[in-house]
Design a binder for these strands. Structure first.
Length: 287
DNA sequence: ACTCTTGTTAAAAC
DNA sequence: GGTTTTAACAAGAG
């Protein structure tokens, strides 16, 4: 389940691997993955990638000399970008692992981008919810406007955050999952942030004290930053652009830990359904 | 055969 | 209108 740290991991790797590269050919293996745009491939040929930006879990790719042509890419639940260098190596520099070892393209490969230096970028997506679609500048602006601010931003306003919690009447978990409120948290990091802040996911947001809100604000920021620093979390499907797992999985305190003991108080971690999602928390130290 | 998994959107219900 | 619930999407794991 790619959330902000996983998408940021992919963004940083793609910047390193495909920035300034020119697309020579695009093969679309599944039309739905490109929003059923029959002109997808032809519009991208001979375009050079200049930047890869991110807002929330959405990637925004821009091109040299093009001010009205962008790509919006969303991994949703099972989307992956996989890069193979011009020498056929996954890691590059004559590494012994090659594309053949990963059997690419495989049955879940939906789009293949070929670059002028013979390198290749694969977009794999088992469940077909993800997409890579062409967008105009206006469409990019509309997409950006749908996201709230990100907890990892230096300018994130914790006072505004606390005030908004007081003004809403939803469970804190539902609110934290709402991308138009704050961007980037998904099921894993919401549970982790709430554990860090000692807050139960089912609490109504207006009942959360200002002190708790401040702790939650810091917890959300810290858990995202710590995960980015180690390449994100692989729980089920996430792989980075070289096919590797994220390393934050070992740091999870509650997500997927039901039945195990809480590392803070020793109680047994519970799993319930909250905001329509599997939700993990410690019934003893989360109030 | 059946349930469960999730990011996002949309629709229906309160 | 705000909010909650449910369905939909899709494919696989158990």
């Amino acid at each position: 389940m790619p959330e902000l740290p996983e998408v940021e991991t992919v963004r940083l790797q793609l910047l390193h691997k495909i920035k300034n590269k020119t697309i020579t050919d695009v093969v679309v293996l599944h039309q739905k993955s490109v929003a059923n745009n029959p002109a997808f491939a032809s519009k991208l040929k001979q375009k050079t990638i200049t930047n890869i930006d991110r807002v929330g879990k959405l990637l925004i790719i821009s091109f040299h000399g093009e001010n009205d042509l962008f790509l919006l890419a969303h991994l949703k639940m099972t989307g992956q970008f996989f890069f193979v260098g011009g020498d056929g190596a996954v890691i590059g520099g004559g590494h012994e692992v090659t594309a053949a070892d990963y059997h690419l393209p495989h049955r879940h490969t939906r789009i293949v981008f070929h670059f002028s230096d013979q390198s290749t970028l694969f977009f794999n997506d088992m469940r077909l919810f993800g997409y890579v679609k062409i967008a105009t500048a206006q469409e990019v602006a509309i997409a950006r406007a749908k996201f709230g601010s990100e907890p990892i931003a230096d300018a994130f306003d914790c006072t505004w955050f606390a005030n908004t919690l007081k003004a809403k009447h939803r469970t804190i978990k539902a609110l934290l999952l709402d991308q138009s409120f704050i961007a980037g948290l998904g099921n894993i990091y919401v549970d982790e942030a709430l554990w860090r802040a000692n807050i139960r996911p089912t609490r109504k947001s207006d009942k959360i004290t200002r002190q708790e809100a401040a702790a939650l604000c810091a917890a959300a920021r810290n858990v995202l930053r710590e995960s980015i620093a180690v390449g994100g979390t692989t729980f089920q499907h996430f792989k980075d652009t070289g096919g590797k797992n994220g390393n934050f999985t070992d740091h999870l305190k509650v997500f997927g830990q039901h039945g195990k003991t809480c590392t803070r108080c020793g109680a047994i971690i519970k799993k319930i359904r909250c905001a329509g999602r599997g939700t993990h928390y410690c019934p003893s130290c989360q109030k």
